[in-house]
Write a protein that binds this DNA or RNA. Sequence first.
DNA 1: TTGCGTGCAAAGGTTTTGCATGGCA
DNA 2: TGCCATGCAAAACCTTTGCACGCAA
Lengths: 144, 144
Amino acid sequence: MAEYKTKQREMILDYMIKNKDIHVTADMIINYFKLHGTPIGKTTVYRNLDKLVADNVVRKFTIDDGVSACYQYAADGSGCMEHYHFKCSECGNLFHVHCDFMNEISEHVYKEHGFVIDSSKTVFYGLCEECRNKGKRGEKIKAR
Amino acid sequence: MAEYKTKQREMILDYMIKNKDIHVTADMIINYFKLHGTPIGKTTVYRNLDKLVADNVVRKFTIDDGVSACYQYAADGSGCMEHYHFKCSECGNLFHVHCDFMNEISEHVYKEHGFVIDSSKTVFYGLCEECRNKGKRGEKIKAR
DNA sequence: TTGCGTGCAAAGGTTTTGCATGGCA
DNA sequence: TGCCATGCAAAACCTTTGCACGCAA
């Protein structure tokens, strides 16, 4: 069960930490290192992400339509444990909302429904303010 | 833009209504009809589901690890518009929670954060009461 | 008859697996 | 040296697309 410290492993973890504020995809990681002249095989990226997820160092999300998973560094105790994610179905932006009220949700759900919410895995879907103001006219930005 | 009423379309809709309480995958639908001696091409299943989603008759979810999407019949006005979904990461069960408190969430998020939640698309992840009581011993049931 | 619906086969994209090589300890 | 890690290629997986035929109206 020994674990070696490799250059790739370190690079990937560094990348995750540096981008702790956003959700990144496996593809983004692969491309980043390719563009920076230090390509990492996609197999390696996937396997390291899996390992980081298993070790609870990184969280895995499935955003929206299930096309490609998203990963995010989870600084235990100080990262995304304490806030919720909102994903706008229109523009695709992801918002990190840190708000005390949201904690009441967890409390209520736990007391009344016996369910312990893992806020770091939960994503709210809906419409952000900007897109709502734009009305129905906004064109989908995403390709598909 | 005329729409024909076909046997397959009807069968799929019937299936969705009959299973309105659970999230079904395209694969489940395909298999169901295959096993019942009335196979429907997967292309047809996907296309009809797409259409039903576009018509707001069926909701599309992306559960957990993004492997295969889930669909559920959405009885307009009386279905999943008014409650939230909780998915237990341990046993994989999906719970439909109808609770007034949950409506306050939408209200708060809208007023304070300008975000309109689509509760029918939002899934909370966490641990259900049963699995929590079982402690850490529970084996994962899902294959992968 | 018209043209939408169906379904096979093939393509598409993401993720996983097999296997030989490379690199840490 | 012993093993784990890497990465190429190929497979697996779910979903979509192309195209010819079938069927509802």
